[in-house]
Write a protein that binds this DNA or RNA. Structure first.
Length: 434
RNA sequence: GGAGGGAUGGCCGAGCGGCCGAAGGCGACGGUCUUGAAAACCGUUGAGGCGUAACCCGUCUCCGUGGGUUCAAAUCCCACUCCCUCCGCCA
């Protein structure tokens, strides 16, 4: 949700944002009208209600007087007159209340359709229109090393680390088992990631992954992204696609002291994604799966600090990739690919040798005040209470990092060398075929 | 799943249907006193909408959520949600 003041004072900002996203612009005009209606209806109700309260206040004492002195015909007549007026007013109040409620509901529903205002620096366009900000590291040239690289699935099978066949047997396509060294690799990555995050003051969290509609909607995942969300219909719950959802909800309906910010959490959770509409894409291996584990950073901070915090989060993501010694590039995601809650988004894409291209491994979004407003998270700054900003960023998405790690560090004999930073957590400097 | 109890402001906790946005206490903040602190005393202390913007002021809404009764609901009635205790089942 966006500050309603923006709608009233400069609706063109919203129109331009929607246009850049390639989303419905007309919804803004509708919203202007609904907003006006809501305020009008509320105002009408307030006036009627004030009148009613005033009348009611007179009735009480008068009733007492009549009771004490039943012969006072004057007081009795006055009381009857008041009751008659109040009775008529009561119906009007009820009607105005219903109208105000209806108008508010309609306006709220329309608001949910509006995505966050895009950062004007985000490149305009669709998925392919990203801007490359930086390229780090040099992909290995396997031809000069004299062998053709195996893909991650082949390596995973040789090492006894990945089993997609049995994953499919048990759960269907896009499911997998991490076994032996694969399972240990995930645990080592987890510990490396959490060690890094806690060293920077992040509070480690293991959150629920099954959440209420409120948390899902508040983080913006029930809009266009809804088709990729697993819903547990029998209980009206959702399986989260990222720890961002429960971490954002952690402080919902709370007012945080400004001096406690920035508040940084690092969550470890399973993530569930339906991957609807991706049939035929990334069908081999574990690049695109329905369930995986991820270490996610999440920050609550002052709106004026959000931009610098976004850079900081990107820095921590890069640091992690640097430790794993994987070549990557950083991209500035285009407006059409931001998702409803992000104003700006940076992805890190790792080099995947067998695909000869860079693939997304992390993503960090500045969601400004959008999620906070929807979830009722504010901060107390001096004597004012106002919205705060939230940001999120991937520290380590297990399957894709494992893919990048295996492919980039493989040797001719099918073994995989372990980058020094990870060795203490894995307890070995090389993974060998079993 | 069965039985019972509960939900009020940052926290604890009172609240005959009208004078209740709500006593009292704690905490926090400001002040007096003090060399400084503590204590004591005095004062302030929820959120949101609207009234064109700020301040003041005014007004409305909010006592778990939704509905109902009533001229009038924190208070009465109904449903739901959540929490606690006991029993059963269970990782």
């Amino acid at each position: 949700m966006i500050d309603p003041k923006v709608l009233r004072e400069s609706p063109d900002v919203l129109r331009e944002s929607q246009r850049r996203r390639g989303e419905d612009v007309a919804v803004i005009d509708r919203l202007v009208e609904l907003d006006r209606q809501r305020r009008q209806a509320q105002h009408d109700y307030d006036e009627l209600r004030a009148e009613q309260k005033q009348l009611s206040k007179q009735i009480g004492p008068l009733q007492g007087a009549v009771k004490k002195n039943p012969d006072d015909a004057g007081a009795k007549a006055e009381l009857d007159a008041l009751m008659a007026r109040a009775g008529g007013l009561s119906d009007q109040v009820k009607q105005a209340d219903a109208e105000a409620t209806r108008a508010a509901q309609e306006a709220d529903e329309a608001w949910l359709l509006v995505s966050n205002i895009v950062d004007m620096r985000s490149p305009v366009g669709g998925e392919e229109d990203f801007a490359v900000l930086e390229v780090v590291g040099t992909p290995r040239d396997f031809s000069t090393e004299g062998f053709a690289p195996r893909d991650h699935l082949e390596l995973g099978e040789i090492l006894g680390a990945i089993d997609v066949e049995r994953g499919a047997k048990v759960s269907g396509s896009r499911f997998y088992f991490l076994t032996g060294p694969g399972a240990l690799l995930e645990l080592a990555l987890l510990n490396l990631a959490v060690a890094q995050a806690t060293s920077y003051g992040f509070i480690p969290v293991i959150p629920p992954v099954l959440v209420s509609p409120r948390a899902m909607e508040g983080t913006g995942f029930l809009g266009q992204a809804a088709e990729n969300v697993y819903r547990i219909e029998s209980d009206d719950m959702y399986l989260v696609g990222t720890a961002e959802v429960p971490l954002a909800g952690l402080h919902s309906d709370e007012i945080l002291p400004a001096d406690s910010l920035p508040l940084r959490y690092v969550g470890w959770s399973s993530c569930f994604r339906r991957e609807a509409g991706s049939y035929g894409k990334d069908t081999r291996g574990i690049i695109r799966v329905h369930q995986f584990d991820k270490v996610e950073m999440f920050v609550f901070c002052r709106p004026e600090d959000a931009e610098s915090e976004h850079e900081r989060i990107l820095g921590w993501e890069r640091e992690f990739m640097d430790k794993l010694e994987i070549p990557y590039r950083v991209i500035d995601v285009a407006t059409g690919d931001l998702g409803s809650s992000a104003a700006r988004k940076f992805d890190i894409e790792a080099w995947i040798p067998t695909q000869g291209t860079y693939r997304e491994v992390t993503s960090t979004s500045n969601t400004t005040e959008f999620q906070a407003r929807r979830l009722g998270i504010r901060m107390r700054d001096g004597d004012e209470t106002r919205a705060l900003a939230t940001l999120n960023g991937t520290l380590c998405a297990m399957p894709r990092v494992i893919v990048a790690l295996l492919e980039n560090h493989q040797r001719a004999d099918g073994s995989v060398s372990v980058p020094p930073a990870l060795q203490p957590f894995l307890g070995t400097d090389v993974l060998r075929p079993s």
